[in-house]
Design a protein around this nucleic acid. Sequence first.
DNA 1: ATGCGCCGGATTGTCGACAATGTCGATGCC
DNA 2: GGCATCGACATTGTCGACAATCCGGCGCAT
Lengths: 249, 249
Amino acid sequence: MAKNTGIGPAAGNGAGAQARESLTVRVQAGIEDLIMTGALRGGDRVNEIALSERFGTSRGPIREACRALAQEGLLVAVPNRGVFVRELDLREALEVYDIRSALDELMGRLIADRVTGPQIDELWVLIGRMDAAAADRDLERYYPANLEFHDCLLSLADNRRLERLYRTLVKELHLFRRKGLLQQGSMRISNEEHRQIVEAIADRDPIAAGVSMKCHVLAAKQRLLAAVEAERSAAVGEQAPRRSRPGRA
Amino acid sequence: MAKNTGIGPAAGNGAGAQARESLTVRVQAGIEDLIMTGALRGGDRVNEIALSERFGTSRGPIREACRALAQEGLLVAVPNRGVFVRELDLREALEVYDIRSALDELMGRLIADRVTGPQIDELWVLIGRMDAAAADRDLERYYPANLEFHDCLLSLADNRRLERLYRTLVKELHLFRRKGLLQQGSMRISNEEHRQIVEAIADRDPIAAGVSMKCHVLAAKQRLLAAVEAERSAAVGEQAPRRSRPGRA
DNA sequence: ATGCGCCGGATTGTCGACAATGTCGATGCC
DNA sequence: GGCATCGACATTGTCGACAATCCGGCGCAT
């Protein structure tokens, strides 16, 4: 099997080719990637030895990276048992949504207070791109545009701590068990909310911008809730809620 | 030289006597304490060897703890230079205040939605204790009561993620250069705001509770801003802004 | 005298090894 | 047959040592 999967000491890896970086941060980014791409799923055990072979390093940097990720909330460390990929239950996911709603409201207010004309134009461009993708029902194009839109808003807020926090929370939501339910919201409805946001920003109305951003998040929360509820009732209607394996956590 | 300064493997230390805890987490808590108590100040260099002697361990746990604290934002890691205690400039402190204002508003809304009668009584008790301390101008008694009051609110919100986030931000504010300016707010004014908060909560009015909590934080932000401004103008008026040492950052 | 290059000390980054702990399976007993 | 106990394996927790890198001072050439 692959002894070195691309992140060796002298391997010019495509993403972020900063050779002069400590191994720990590279491993940290690598593990994050493994989680984001789904290679590591919630509840999975993180084996230090396996990872050290996977990344071609010793266990030291692995452990340091895991400590950092545990502090960030992506992993949980159980003493003498190892670290596991954190699993977000519905309640925790909703908690994160509530927090994001508050932060997004702040973000909207901050943006409306300091936005410039060209920045507004840029937002409209992104809205247009999302509109086009939504018209084609092309989720593969919509999703990155949506990401870029929110990144743009994030940078416009001009609050570095808020930016870091927001990114942490977004990553955290990837730990939700069935994250497929997250982006189940219809693109057109979501983009209508985006348009409202940009309009409020263009009006330089902090209150309206904050409210529209908050509602955008809360609407996503409601969509998730509805999706979960739908899934549950479907499962109940479908024979019995069969218990799969007695498997361990 | 002191081979063991109190946190050895078998030392029953007073704070958090959980013997079956990994060294890393103990070291992490220890370093946090060093920062909170001011033994380590913003910008200070964190020497791994010194800390390993201080805590009576090897460098491994120290490094892991530092990684975690760096991820948390209390330390900053400079490649091949080591880790330093993060220093919060005014701008960053204000950023944190803005974020806290948003989170506190959320907290107020959540509390007003789910608070019970006995919990309201408990809040009034704490208000009374703060009132008494404020009447005596006893900051030594006011400060812990204030802390307990906010802890109580935090638990009442019943949002674990929010709680963790809030505590992180509070710790972060300790990194502000002259944190003495932070609690410079007069006790009576602050406690008047507290009373407003509890009244709104007792009315079970989520909007009012959120607004009053948000304003409480924003008022603290303004007090900090005023204190900094006052300090600056005083420094300007007082001869020359003498440059101290050519010292390093 | 001043700027440049070299060298020594100190510290960080990384590694492999040992000890401690927990887990899983086999064995024996009730 | 079910359950408690014991033992071997696997994994984590911790340590000491080596190599890479960086900071500071010294000497030298211009």
